[in-house]
Design a protein around this nucleic acid. Structure first.
Lengths: 134, 134
DNA sequence: GCCAATTGCGTTACAATATAACATTGATTA
DNA sequence: TAATCAATGTTATATTGTAACGCAATTGGC
């Protein structure tokens, strides 16, 4: 089995999984402090770093927040985040061909990519459905 | 002519253009305070917001920093940032086809994109050249 | 067994980024 | 002139993130 995480790290992961959307580090901290009032920011950030190392959690750069990966995406280093600015829902999707194209485009100048941040803001299907037509 | 900016906003743009890489809002603030010690954060953030509205400046989400757009990219809403994690240089490039593909991929689920964040971290050509071969 | 050395986590303090809320000023016009 | 509005200044605070130090548990060598 893979047990190699501290209790705090497990709790952080559990919290991120319960919310199904990005959560700020300080919101996680707040929830943990309900049971353990003495916990402090560095603990959270260390747990988040460990979870990101393992590919279990991603940081959403344009929100300064963190989100548990969906199982089937964990093996991919890069996922595409679709962020609904109306309801806050985030969908994670993968598109290896697109990421490859992107690497090729910017690789032309000799740049060697190590990490891709692809985040698309907009309006999700269910929020868009309730709108006035243009 | 297009004069419709405050003096502060002009200064912020000038500072961002001098640096040819992303600069934090507080670094901009620091430079402005050399001549006007009383200026405060909200002024900077307002100037940055105005410049982003006009497409003259972009925010680099994964660095929490801001950068003046290169002239020929200003008309495009989306540019791809290649960020060298070694020397800090950032290249802005455009790839409308790729952005279109991306919109199509995530549009399949009914998501309507309004803003794309595409930032690639890695090592630029000149930094990569000075490395040990693998 | 005992003593470094290492490692992980706790804790304190602070740094860096960003915005809310209210005050002032200066232009606009009734 | 007085009323209004927009832009900017100002104060204060919120939010996000880290550096640095200390302690306790683990481990590997002797």
């Amino acid at each position: 089995m893979s047990r190699e995480r501290s209790k705090t790290t497990d709790s952080v992961l559990a919290i991120l999984r319960r919310h199904r959307r990005p959560v700020s580090a300080y919101d996680v901290l707040g929830e943990l402090q309900d049971t353990n009032p003495k916990i402090a920011p560095p603990t959270i950030y260390r747990a988040l770093a460990a979870l990101m190392d393992k590919g279990l959690v991603r940081r959403v750069e344009s929100l300064n927040a963190f989100m548990a990966c969906k199982g089937r995406n964990r093996r991919h280093h890069t996922s595409i985040m679709s962020i609904c600015d109306d309801c806050g829902a985030v969908e994670e999707s993968i598109a290896p061909d697109l990421v490859e194209d992107l690497s090729v485009v910017i690789g032309k100048s000799g740049f060697e990519p190590t990490r891709h941040v692809i985040e698309v803001h907009g309006v999700c299907a269910s929020c868009g459905a309730g709108r006035m037509p243009a």
